[in-house]
Design a binder for these strands. Structure first.
Lengths: 167, 167
DNA sequence: TTTCCTGCAAATCGTTTGCATTAAA
DNA sequence: TTTAATGCAAACGATTTGCAGGAAA
């Protein structure tokens, strides 16, 4: 809500510029703008979301470039690709806390992040038990969030296929 | 290995036939054959895997029919759709133990199932903490399995994108 | 018979790629 | 200048859908 305020100074964006330079990759305006959109956001953005935000800023950047830039951002470790079973991917800025899991609302699509120490320990134990060298993991809990429970009550039952729209 | 032995009698397959009848859906040979392949398997099959097995039995069933049958099987609760981030889905027979999680090897693609009581409790607790009405969840642990560790030692580092081939 | 299915091909949809043009170094 | 990126459109791969012909009930 309001005018887009291009923030050319931001530690994350600077980190991306540094990454590009250090890897001999040109720092282009398109790359900066895609990076800016996602690095400033707190949400889990789809490519569609990103294109919409770019359009709102009156920037026309080809879809291919968006995908290519997201790939670099993911490799640089500044963003992470997520898959919530919607048929497409979402991208989120890598947060302060390294590992976190997701609670996903089946009604409104809201995504809540959480961390849990006990879970970290448990997952290491489980991997060990099976002789696995643990690399990474993902835990997603699907359900109905507080707000949706309040609104809809216990009427409409939740189906197994998430009717997530966006966000 | 060996000739395919069509097993027309099997509690699972019978369950599927019953489901079809009870829902006013015709019991066709195609549906039975797709169901047979997946209900007899213990693995996590892709549509490609299923088609291959059908071909081995000299059955030619259209891809669309395979997809449509898998949808019914999933709705009936006899199989579950899985997504291991490979760009396509896998299907597995619903096992005896209702909830189970997956350990996925990044080298060979092997999938190991496990259950963990403590985990079940933990996930309920976490959902409660956030006011979520828990519906279902998924936990996948990616790493290198015992066999691959033995073979490859600690040489080739594992990348974040799973090079899973099949299985 | 009536209804629903099957197979095929065309359509979708997210994502990737080839290539001529253009911008960064 | 040299090198690599961009944008467009075509290509892709998994999945879905429309429709004419063909089996179940």
């Amino acid at each position: 809500m309001g005018e887009a305020q291009p923030t050319d100074r931001s530690p994350l964006l600077d980190g991306f510029r540094r990454y590009l330079r250090e890897h001999g990759l040109p720092v282009t305006t398109q790359r900066e703008q895609v990076a800016e959109v996602i690095l400033q956001s707190l949400g889990h953005l789809s490519v569609d979301d990103i294109e919409r935000q770019l359009r709102e800023r009156d920037l026309k950047i080809g879809k291919a470039t968006v995908y290519r830039t997201l790939e670099i951002l993911a490799k640089s470790g500044l963003i992470t690709e997520r898959d919530f079973n919607e048929g497409f991917h979402r991208y989120e800025r890598v947060p302060g806390h390294p590992h976190h899991e997701h609670l996903i609302c089946l009604r409104c699509g809201r995504v809540i992040e959480f961390t849990n120490e006990q879970l970290e320990r448990l997952k290491t134990m489980i991997a060990d038990e099976h002789g696995f060298q643990h690399h990474h993991h993902r835990l997603e809990i699907y359900g109905v969030c507080r707000e949706c429970r309040r609104q809809a009550g216990a009427d409409r039952p939740v189906t197994s296929s998430p009717p997530i729209e966006s966000r």
